[in-house]
Design a protein around this nucleic acid. Sequence first.
DNA 1: GAGAAAACTGGGAGCGCTCCCAACGGGTTG
DNA 2: CAACCCGTTGGGAGCGCTCCCAGTTTTCTC
Lengths: 343, 343
Amino acid sequence: MSSRKRPGQRPTLEAVARLAGVGRGTVSRVVNGSPGVSAKARTAVEAAIAELKYVPNPAARSLVTSRTDSIALVIPESESRLAAEPYFSAVIRGVSTELADTEMQLLLILVRNQRELDRLTRFVEAQRVDGVLLVSVHRDDPLPAFLEKMQIPTVLAGRRSPGEPLSHVHSDNLGGAAQAVRHLLGQGRRAVATITGPLDMDVGRSRLQGWRDAHLEAGGRRADESLAVSGDFTEEGGRAAMRELLERRPDLDAVFAASDVMAAGALTELRERGRRVPADVAVIGFDDSIIARHTVPPLTSVNQPSEDLGRAITRLLLDEIDDPSRPRRQLTLPTTLVHRLTT
Amino acid sequence: MSSRKRPGQRPTLEAVARLAGVGRGTVSRVVNGSPGVSAKARTAVEAAIAELKYVPNPAARSLVTSRTDSIALVIPESESRLAAEPYFSAVIRGVSTELADTEMQLLLILVRNQRELDRLTRFVEAQRVDGVLLVSVHRDDPLPAFLEKMQIPTVLAGRRSPGEPLSHVHSDNLGGAAQAVRHLLGQGRRAVATITGPLDMDVGRSRLQGWRDAHLEAGGRRADESLAVSGDFTEEGGRAAMRELLERRPDLDAVFAASDVMAAGALTELRERGRRVPADVAVIGFDDSIIARHTVPPLTSVNQPSEDLGRAITRLLLDEIDDPSRPRRQLTLPTTLVHRLTT
DNA sequence: GAGAAAACTGGGAGCGCTCCCAACGGGTTG
DNA sequence: CAACCCGTTGGGAGCGCTCCCAGTTTTCTC
């Protein structure tokens, strides 16, 4: 009853070393897969580890290596979007998948208000993660700059602007939007309107630009800007935008909405105004989310590979953690138009 | 160029102590809000902390306290459900909200296959979290028992069976289902069918039981079991179940589906079979998710407070971490019927 | 104003690990 | 046969913190 450790105590490196008849250093080398261990020693250590069910203490390791073996996924979004958009869960799934054959852990951080922002700040300052994934960035978002200043490896899903210097991955928003609008124009639609996303986000601006580009390349003439109304990615916003559009341009015969959620709102408004879809007005959304399959009629939509995006940002981040001096990289993921019944 | 620390090095307790002219112990006490520090010392320390921008090193702290200040949210679900059901994001939001005025961090762990399960096991064994939230448990899920064996504070969202010994919070599945069916019966519907959830989950069984109970209490007679077909919470499953039901009992005039997603599938099938909703067949779903608002017609559904559920499990877990000897608690959250146009 | 109690304070010990260096042994080489 | 080399090994030092105890100072009590 003297120096007996209380039972249930987890075995330490030391204990493994003693049992295997080697020194601490050797056990550490085996555990970390370092070279320079004889086969004999390795076997003995492995046996001891198995017998004691040894699991390294991450805190002790972290203390000396100052790695944490975890990354944070930061979602700076208001309640509503997180609730409504399957985009985020898809990204989470992708991240998780990519992490699966790593020992890295995923911390999820929602930043919905100042309080949570402060919390994130403290968190990053305490170096509780090796890197940060930032999903959904706004143009004037202070977070990317903060992370850059903290010198912590960071990868964005999306970008602040086309010149984004940080590593990031984004969907081909411009191309996807252009393809959608091109399709509408190709159907012979004369007045193709658009409900944009928030214009303080690159997604919003790029999809709008895609709408413009398609017009330019088709008719060789500019898009009529009175056919563009901005939304906020919410359903009610989409609906309000549709109302406005209808008032402004009763002659419109097609709408490209920058998100499915907004397209759903637009559909509701169109139905209430007695416009038939697609006979009178064709509609295309963006995201190809579950909502697109459930609107009536089912919504034609631009698919973006959200889960792949999650995987991609994770891969970039892991690389960057591995070698922080590595140059920043940017990736654009392809989108595809999924045809349903609103066109 | 001798013992100079490399610049950018974070300040330590020691540094703060030196600057404040006190001992390490005192600084530690201030940082941790322990009592027994004179106002003078406290002020000096706080000034030094501010000046050096000191942030405690969590690894060092964790090493000695063997607390990690983080909890894990474990979601053991197949791809499809996570993708389709807003339930999970709502729970996540609730958890995050409840954690907001804590210094606890949230680790998100998806367990979709054996590989990820092993990873979780190692993870828990390494004691990388102070507690675990387990969302969506199946009757024969090995996870709860494993966590219990590991003696780690655990709270379930849902339960394995009505006798669940672990702390848990669940919606009033039985009551909610009964209320829905009662409503249908009250409308004068004669043959109220049900599409159940997976029967290896308590949610599935309880909602089925609610359907039975409502029949019993209404007519005083048993529900006709030929009117119950089991689904798997997927849309396609709901659709298949509806098809089966229609074949079995062409006379049915109402359906209670144990989830909105399945109800959506059922609606599709009904439409294709030419049954009018709600004229010929009334439909009620469960979850009151975003999908319910987008089906045509909009779906009457049983609302369960998923976000509150997230908050509740978190609160229970924090309490249990605080005092592991605390008796297990169970909570049932109320559901409400939200009327839309399918009834 | 002496003695005792209470309120504070400093710093040693130690958490479990990685890093690194000195030491060891056996095989080569000139 | 001495000098050397290389693969392997053990273990000291130290990461930054909390815990705790032995002082030291202040306050209280009679």
